[in-house]
Amino acid sequence: MGQPGFFDLDEHYQRLSENGDPLVKLAALIDFEAFRPKLATALKRSDGSKGGRPPYDPVLMFKVLILQTLYTLSDDATEFQIRDRLSFMRFLGLGFEDAVPDAKTVWLFREQLTRAGAIEDLFAAFDTWLKGKGYLAMSGQIIDASIIAAPRQRNTDAEKAALREGKIPDEWAVKPKKLAQKDRDARWTLKRAKARAAKADGTKAKVEIAVPVFGYKTHVSIDRKYGFVRRFTVTSAAAHDGAQLANVLDPANTASDVWADTAYRSKANEAHLAKHGRRSKIHFRRQPGLDLTPSQRKANRARSKVRSGVETVFAAQKHRFGLFVRTIGLARARTKIGLANLAYNLKRFLWIETRLVAA
């Protein structure tokens, strides 16, 4: 068997395109160069005159992180898949003769972005690019939060108490290696879920249960018109949803309506919305000992139909992207979740543009 030539490779690429390689459309529709200024600012790269191996192109490395997020890859798996898959190589603009970033390089690049706090700027850069394409935040916004699980920490009660007080447990302080492997920012919380419980007559009824979960929480605001994530923040899983409304409220949305569930219903949030010219579409909450009025129940049903649109974001990230925080600390979790929000917007843009062409 002879060595594959240029035309053999070209034929492989052509067949990949004919079979619907999604990365071809992604590369064609997204101007990844729009991220270069923010990447350059964050990385503060030199011109290479100091010697040593020149760094990989920052846009190429950023695209590597996008691939990693879209396909749920570890750093080692990312290196392997780039070497193994022609579709990845073409997306990154790499040839067989080009060097491929190894797992350590991928980790270091992501770590540089984390230390620079760059994910918010990169996310905002794409939002600006979207608006330049005519995708303004319109028709109001939907706010919600979702828990993103992390590896459970096996801590003693004393260690948990110290962490809640913002302290480092004494045993960890004298063991730097152990301390480096402990996530001091993630927290436990209870997640409400539905289950079917057996009744005495043998039938099953839906009951509400509380499931303990350890990790972080992503808070987002999406625009109702297009469904893009416009603002986000990341906290521990124990943070209250309603306390983050002001942090994710998008002032650029052209409409005043704001939808959210009952966790966001408070006098402080209602006052904040009114102060900023926003109209509350937050679900009504039943007061202790009182039922909702018929008009409130009717309003909640109507609001649920709109508010449910935000679940598309969380479903895509958890099921398609397999979002799970395996890093340590809030800063790294913010980068991880921020990349997932950005990757979701990239895929959302691709989906909308494809539908427009088909129509």
Rank of each mutant, 00 (worst) to 15 (best):
G166T: 13
N345T: 09
F96I: 13
Q287K: 15
V207Y: 07
V213T: 14
R196D: 00
H276R: 07
A173L: 14
D183V: 05
A193E: 15
G322I: 12
L350N: 05
A186M: 07
A150L: 02
T233F: 08
P22N: 05
Q287F: 11
E171M: 08
R334Y: 04
W107C: 03
E33N: 10
T327E: 12
L122V: 05
S280P: 05
G166Q: 08
P58C: 02
A42W: 03
A173N: 07
G338I: 09
K281Q: 15
G52F: 02
K25A: 08
I143M: 09
L130G: 01
D31N: 14
L273C: 09
A268E: 11
G134F: 04
L136W: 10
K178C: 00
R286N: 03
E353N: 00
Q3M: 07
A124P: 01
P288M: 02
D250F: 15
V220E: 04
D98W: 12
P151N: 03
A180F: 06
N300P: 11
S46R: 12
R192E: 13
G2A: 11
W172T: 06
L70W: 13
A161C: 03
Y135D: 00
A34C: 14
K305E: 07
F96R: 05
E208I: 15
I30C: 12
A197Y: 07
A124Q: 08
F324D: 00
R90M: 09
S221R: 11
K104R: 09
V174D: 07
L292P: 08
A268D: 10
F7T: 05
F32R: 02
P4H: 03
K225A: 13
P4V: 01
H283Y: 10
R307I: 04
Q181C: 10
Y344T: 03
K178I: 09
L113I: 11
G277L: 08
H240P: 07
P101T: 01
D8L: 05
H319Y: 12
G242I: 07
L330W: 13
R297V: 10
F349K: 06
R348Y: 11
G134N: 02
Q296G: 03
V248W: 04
T105A: 13
R83K: 15
A99H: 10
A210P: 08
K178Q: 09
A252R: 15
K63H: 06
K38F: 06
A331Q: 12
I222C: 04
W129A: 09
Q244F: 12
A193F: 00
G322A: 04
Q68D: 06
F80T: 12
A331V: 08
W172K: 04
S49C: 10
A299N: 08
H219W: 14
A34F: 06
A77K: 13
K281Y: 04
A255D: 15
D8T: 13
R297H: 08
G5D: 15
V100G: 03
T293E: 04
K167E: 15
I352T: 04
L113T: 04
V258S: 01
R348M: 06
S146D: 11
D8M: 02
S266E: 03
P4D: 00
G215E: 05
D261V: 09
T312A: 09
F284K: 08
L130Q: 10
K182N: 06
E33R: 14
G140C: 02
G289T: 05
G52P: 06
L16A: 12
T262E: 15
Q81T: 07
Q287Y: 15
I337T: 07
S266R: 02
K38H: 13
A103C: 01
S146V: 09
S295H: 06
A252D: 14
